[in-house]
Structure formats: C-alpha cells, structure tokens
Nucleic acid binder design. Structure first.
Lengths: 141, 141
DNA sequence: CTAAGCCTTACAGCAACTGTAAGGTCAAGA
DNA sequence: TCTTGACCTTACAGTTGCTGTAAGGCTTAG
C-alpha cells in the first residue's frame, strides 16, 4: 500500500511517517518502480506502536528504546516496565508542577478586582522582583 | 548596569534578555560608548515582569499583551483578569489531559508482569491498532 | 488531453530559547 | 607593559517534533 493508506491505517500523517523515516526511527520501506514507498501490514503495526507511544508522551528517543524492545523477542518485560514507570513518574512530576502553577494563577485571579480601575493585583504581583535583593550601583555612573 | 547585572537581578539569562530585545518584546536599552547595553532599574522591573509571566505559563504573545497592560496606566483590571482567567482555564485543561495520560500509563504499569519474560502487556497495548478497522488491499499486488 | 489527486524531494518555519564561534573591551596583577 | 580572565558584541546553528510550501513527476478518470 502507498503512504496515504499507511497514514490512514496507522493514524499518523503521511508527513510524519516520512519524518520518522528521515530520522531513522522507522526503517525505510521498499519502493515501487515509480519510486513510491510501499508499506506492508507489519509496517502498520509498527507505526501504530509509534503513534501510541507518542500519545503516551514518550519522546522520540524513548520511542526508539520502546521500539527496540517491541522488535526484540528476547526482551524482558521488566525493561519495558522500567521505561513506562519512569515515564509515569515524569508525568506525575509534570502534573504536580502544573498544579502549583494553577494554584498560583487561581490566587491571582482571585486577587484581581476585575473592574474598570487601573489598579490590579495581578500586575502588581507579576512585577514583584523576587530575585532582586538590593539595587545595584550603575557600573559607570 | 550591564546585561549580566540585569540578568542577575531579573533572574533571566542574559541570552534571553537579548532574545527578548531581538523579538521586540523588550525595548532596546541605550548603549554605552563601548557598545555595551546599559540597563536602568526600571528595566529590571519589566524583565522581572516578563520572567514571572513566562513562569506562569504565558507565551510570548500573551506576555506582549500583559506587558502592554502593565505599561498602560489607563488599563482596566478586568482586561488583565480576563487574560489570566483564560490562562487558568488553559492550564486546567492541560492538567486534565495529563491526568488521563497518567491514568493510562498507570494502567500499563499495572498490567505488565515486570519479570524476565518477553511477554509484555505494555508492548501488546502499544501495538494495538486502534485506528485500523480493516486490512487494506495492496494498491498493486 | 486534461484535471484531480496522488507521490517525490528539499527547504523553511514554528516556540522559545540555547550553544558556539569569532572577535572587541576592560580591570587587575606580575 | 603585558597578559590573563571576565566581560561584552554579533551572527549563525541547533534544539524538538513536526508542519507548510514549492516544484515537479505519476496515475487515473472523464
């Protein structure tokens, strides 16, 4: 099948499939006489694997590792487990971080008068110079 | 003061300050005779504002808007409120999305035997072809 | 014959920086 | 005075994971 069929079946844009080929994430398929890429059903499996892994937040390097395990019949499931639980920790950390940002934003929203006045607690907070402990002298007055 | 002082005081890398100048987010400061950028204390306020806004997840475009409001004494706090509560909604949506990913990952981790065997529920799940409803015929068999 | 709809490559662009190279400036110490 | 090191400058490339665009070739239906 041609690349657009592979795209439909895998759920990845054709452009992305070519991109994965260009970075050697997905092996180059054989070509038809006219130069068109020809994909097999097994290629679709692999492309789906990549789409899913990306959807789960694995970056390209991690996808490469996962794909190596996927293709390796001698893999041990504990290796896969390790990769995925590391990613889980990563996502958890990200969620916590975002949660803190969320709370700070909520506090800002709550503090703002939300009226026609120029005075604004949000602006005041954003302009706060947390990093500045003292005023520095001009290098050359 | 020179750019490295401004960097220390604002908490932004000097490189980032130059970058903000290059994209017209932060106005170019006057130059000393030797060509060095000279920053005033009021510049530090603005740079801190930008650092904080970026930390809160506002992108450069949104920072531009916020900065406009910051610098405009005729602003109405409701405009600021709008921007920030929009961002809050954005962050909430992002957190929900990540939460779903987290749950799916946790399910994967739970399903994996985590042993020396090659059989792995994670690999099986990732290879699942959700998008594929039927096998497509070869375009040219 | 032509028009649409595929396919190909190559290059540019996105966000928001960060790294590197190549060179100018400045203050302190031997 | 020379030199060393820490600044500063610009310009360009690289990062991540694609996506858009251009320019052209192939294929198929009418």
């Amino acid at each position: 099948m041609n690349i657009s069929d592979a795209a439909k079946l895998s759920g990845l844009p054709a452009k992305t499939i070519r991109y994965y080929e260009s970075i050697d994430l997905f092996g180059a398929p054989r070509r038809a006489a006219n130069g068109y890429r020809r994909y097999e059903n097994t290629d679709i499996q692999t492309l789906c694997f990549l789409r899913q892994a990306r959807q789960f937040g694995f970056n390209i390097g991690q996808c490469r590792l996962l794909l190596g395990l996927y293709k390796n019949p001698q893999r041990r499931s504990t290796e896969v487990h390790q990769l995925v639980s590391d990613k889980l920790k990563e996502v958890d950390a990200h969620i916590r971080e975002l949660g803190e940002t969320r709370d700070l934003l909520a506090r800002l929203v709550g503090a703002c008068a939300n009226d026609e006045d120029a005075e604004c607690a949000i602006i005041d907070t954003l302009a706060g110079q947390q990093e500045q402990s003292q005023v520095v002298e001009e290098s050359k007055p």
